[in-house]
């Protein structure tokens, strides 16, 4: 049975998978990918790889999204049993006070980010990661049987459908990108394709696009569509640096991206009545497209972004319609190509 988008997001966002320890997330995504190909697996570095179409005669298109999420890592357990942590990727530390977390040790245990009440804390500065401790209610001795240095910590948030087609969960960055690829594959089932298509859900994007570097070397694509998230407008943000939530896929234009590919995608969006917005960046994009485009002798890459609010906090928000417009654009490109023109 086909999952609807909310069910897909619920499944993908309910698993952990902080950078460098993505196994459970990769496994969940792999199970979902199996519906579209038997030729899929998890590579030695943890990334999910799937070969969708392999004629050997067509140009190779890679559809990539990253599978890892930001979080924390256990760096020390003090004598009183409190856990000191480091950041993995760039979580927004200002919203972590009293946040419920899950420590992925030998078993999963719950904890709370300790916070001083205002009348005791004093001063007017945000808590630094190095000053945070996690409270589990266990003694050091009890904890040492469950938690090991290096265990990852995720922020708790029950994936929840909001009003209309809006959806709130942790790790929507970039599990909604993964979902957009799966939705595109659903649309492509049984269709004539313009490319040989590979899919990768890569690890360690948040810590420097490392999984993508490794996967791209193996897959050696000619074209890359990178599905990631980008900034949706909030009242306090710079209008020029944000897109609008619910107004469609963001097509990237940047020096590091293929201008021809961006233009072709804009053209396809127009032809197919797919709502889209432009995301203009002045250098690299900060997505896996930067890394994959310089793989071996190079690939033409474009980033398609899903507008997201509250990036790198425990409760990110997207509009699932924006995931759908992203998947429609992926499918349109995969079928119609336009490779000759690109």
């Amino acid at each position: 049975m086909t999952m609807n988008i909310n069910e897909m997001l619920y499944t993908l966002c309910s698993v952990d998978g902080v950078s460098g320890d993505e196994r459970s997330a990769s496994q969940a995504a792999l199970e979902m990918l199996r519906k579209y190909t038997d030729d899929c697996y998890i590579d030695d570095f943890g990334s999910v790889i799937g070969h969708i179409a392999k004629s050997g005669k067509k140009p190779k298109l890679l559809l990539d999204a990253h599978i890892d999420r930001v979080g924390l890592i256990v760096s020390y357990i003090d004598d009183a049993g409190f856990i000191k942590v480091g950041a993995v990727g760039g979580p927004d530390k200002r919203v972590l006070a009293a946040q419920s977390v899950t420590i992925h040790g030998k078993e999963k245990i719950k904890g709370t980010v300790s916070v001083l009440p205002p009348h005791v804390k004093g001063g007017d500065s945000a808590v630094k990661i190095e000053d945070m401790v996690i409270d589990t209610g266990f003694t050091k001795e009890q904890l040492s049987k469950i938690v090991t240095l290096g265990d990852r910590i995720t922020f708790d948030c029950e994936p929840t459908a909001l009003i209309g087609t809006r959806y709130c969960a942790g790790a929507l960055d970039d599990r909604c990108g993964v979902a957009s690829i799966l939705c595109a594959l659903e649309k492509l089932s049984g269709k004539e394709l313009a490319f040989d298509i590979d899919v990768s859900f890569t690890v360690q994007e948040e810590t420097g696009e490392r999984g993508a570097k490794i996967a791209a070397y193996d897959l050696d694509p000619d074209y890359v569509l990178e599905m990631d998230v980008s900034f949706a407008k909030t009242p306090d943000s710079d209008r020029a640096k944000c897109a609008d939530m619910s107004k469609g896929v963001m097509i990237g234009i940047a020096p590091s991206l293929s201008r021809e590919l961006s233009e072709r995608l804009i053209c396809l969006a127009k032809e197919n009545d797919i709502p889209y917005q432009l995301e203009v960046m002045s250098g690299e994009t900060g997505t896996n497209a930067d890394t994959i485009s310089v793989n071996k002798s190079g690939a033409k890459a474009c980033t398609l972004s899903i507008p997201l609010k509250f990036m790198h906090t425990p409760a990110e928000i997207i509009d699932t319609e924006d995931v759908m417009s992203t998947s429609r654009l992926i499918a349109a490109f995969a079928m119609k190509g336009g490779a000759d023109n690109v």
Binding site: G90, D238, F310, H312
Partner: peptide, 11 residues
Amino acid sequence: VGVIGGKAVHQ
């Protein structure tokens, strides 16, 4: 359900 928030940490 809702979330109070503002611009991304990156910005």
